[in-house]
Design a protein around this nucleic acid. Structure first.
Lengths: 227, 227
DNA sequence: CTCAATTGTGACCAACAGTCACATTCTGAC
DNA sequence: GTCAGAATGTGACTGTTGGTCACAATTGAG
């Protein structure tokens, strides 16, 4: 969970002041996470975060260049924990079970941590990344690479077994990603339970089946039936 | 809002002053649409819209209760035009061709009018609807009902023909909706062309295939394989 | 022409992200 | 111990923007 990227030195060896500084940084993130759990996370102000963390507003900006940098940190650590969960999935079972497990694991984590999940979604916005300092940008790219590495490996197993159509990785992944993002969007907007009269669990089950059917049922080649 | 006999009276029969008022309302919407076409539509200010429409800022609020009401009006008229396009699709061709046409038509329209499309997406947010006056809320509900009516009719044809699995309408639609929303989200965030090295057209083709495969390939019944 | 109602206006207000000059605390050299 | 200066903390302040309001201008009926 902690970012060990900074150096080889472990936390205990740091000067006391520096440790305090890092602890305070975590305090801010924790305070932010708590507040974002409320009704409308977008309306949480930096001043509220500062009060919750029992520090001054200016101090927040000693730790984070902007409010968005706070979002970014939360999103990154959340995605780290998702990747960790992925890597605990056994790859020896049938590949469609693996895919199903990946999908369910994702939904379960996102639904168990709505605040972090929504912020992660927000951080995917293209213009969001551009406004970040290069250090955070690099962390996002790194994370993306590791996710791709993992999922491509799983897809390759399925392709070898002839269960998943042999197509470029890109083409296999985009449908899954789009459906997952869109489904979360629907849940967060209360379109589930209201628009359609489905319960959340049923909704997730149906979406999971849809994603699997879409992946396994893709034609072997991109057809040329443009309008 | 007092005596609304607008229904029977055509525009030409209205008092000059009232016509002027409506024309000005359209001016504001047009100005807004123009500005939203720029780089970051969220950053367009009410003052900019007022300047573009060559009126005072206060005047904007004589026509629209809030900035969000402007968004809502744009989203509604955009969806009306989408529904119109749907109804021009011939229902006599094979049902998978009809579904494909619906999907392509949607993508084409959304990609041809990015500003309106993004605003429509924004207006789907749950908390957005709640902040609207009841008149606009009713318009959204009405629109939603007409979309469902149309798509359910198409699905029923497919079910009768045995092409689409016999499942509740809800369950058939959610996957399509989620994938479509998510795909647009990906396009707007520059994840297409960058993250995956796909061109937009190819991306839309792949997503369309995925949606069709997901719909047609759903198991006949919701399976009980919860984790 | 007169007057009341409708429509237009921009100065003004509140809220909030971000800044900065200054205060406080820590560290290490002497 | 103490003192300099670096690191960290702070809240008053700024700029921006969505929304309000008291007043001005225009209209049209009598």
């Amino acid at each position: 969970m902690e970012h060990h990227e900074t150096s080889v030195i472990s936390i205990d060896q740091m000067p006391r002041k520096e440790r305090e500084f890092l602890r305070r940084q975590q305090d801010i993130l924790t305070a932010a996470r708590n507040l974002f759990g409320g009704a409308d996370w977008q309306q949480v102000t930096v001043e509220q975060i500062a009060r919750e963390a029992e520090i001054g507003k200016g101090t927040v900006y000693k730790h984070f260049a902007s409010k968005e940098a706070i979002y970014a940190n939360i999103a990154i650590s959340f995605h780290e924990s998702l990747l960790t969960k992925f890597q605990q999935i056994s790859l020896t079972q049938p590949i469609d079970r693996v895919m199903h497990a990946i999908i369910r694991t994702s939904f379960d984590l996102f639904l168990a941590h709505p605040a972090e999940a929504r912020i992660s979604h927000y951080c995917k916005r293209g213009d969001f990344l551009e406004g970040l300092d290069s250090q955070l940008q690099a962390q996002f790219l790194n994370l993306e690479g590791r996710f791709n590495e993992y999922i491509y490996q799983v897809l390759d197993i399925g392709i070898d077994q002839g269960v998943i159509p042999k197509r470029p990785h890109d083409q296999l992944v985009v449908g899954l990603e789009a459906t997952f993002d869109g489904a979360l969007f629907m849940i967060w907007n209360g379109q589930v339970n209201h628009l359609s009269h489905m319960q959340q669990n049923e909704f997730v089950d149906v979406i999971s089946e849809f994603m699997l059917a879409g992946l396994l049922g893709l034609p072997k080649h991109l057809s040329e039936n443009r309008t």
